[in-house]
């Protein structure tokens, strides 16, 4: 199961775990967004590595070349990256508004304020 060729997949799992851990464990909302982005990047790497073929070139047509990487995952991931930044922007905007309302972006402090009000 462990060989150098499949190293990419191992790193994907490692990055996915790191991203998930940051999302779960950090209390700061901005850091959670960073964690979400790491998670997202690991999925991107998984897709791109599934579409790559040994000895293949970039999927731009050249006379005489028949071995290309699979262009379909590239398309999906290209648009996913741009959509990812757009959704991150929304998440950060929400964090900024939460900071306005509660004076903090730390989850536990916000929760404390909520329970005091109730």
């Amino acid at each position: 199961m462990i060989d150098a060729g499949n190293m990419v997949y191992w790193v994907v799992v490692l990055l996915m775990m790191t991203g998930l851990y940051v999302v779960l464990a950090s209390s700061n909302l901005v850091k959670k967004v960073v964690g979400l982005n790491i998670f997202q990047t690991s999925v991107f790497i998984l897709y791109i590595s599934l579409g790559s073929v040994s000895g293949g070139t970039a999927p731009i047509h050249v006379e005489g070349v028949t071995n290309y990487a699979n262009p379909l995952p590239h398309v999906l991931i290209l648009t996913a990256i741009v959509v990812g930044v757009a959704t991150s922007a929304v998440a950060l905007a929400l964090a900024v508004r939460i900071h306005d309302a509660y004076g903090s972006v730390e989850e536990d402090l916000i929760e404390k304020q909520e329970t005091e009000q109730a």
Partner: peptide, 11 residues
């Protein structure tokens, strides 16, 4: 390095 030049550009 994985041949995904468009994706790299975007990233």
């Amino acid at each position: 390095s994985l041949g995904a030049v468009d994706v790299a550009f975007t990233e």
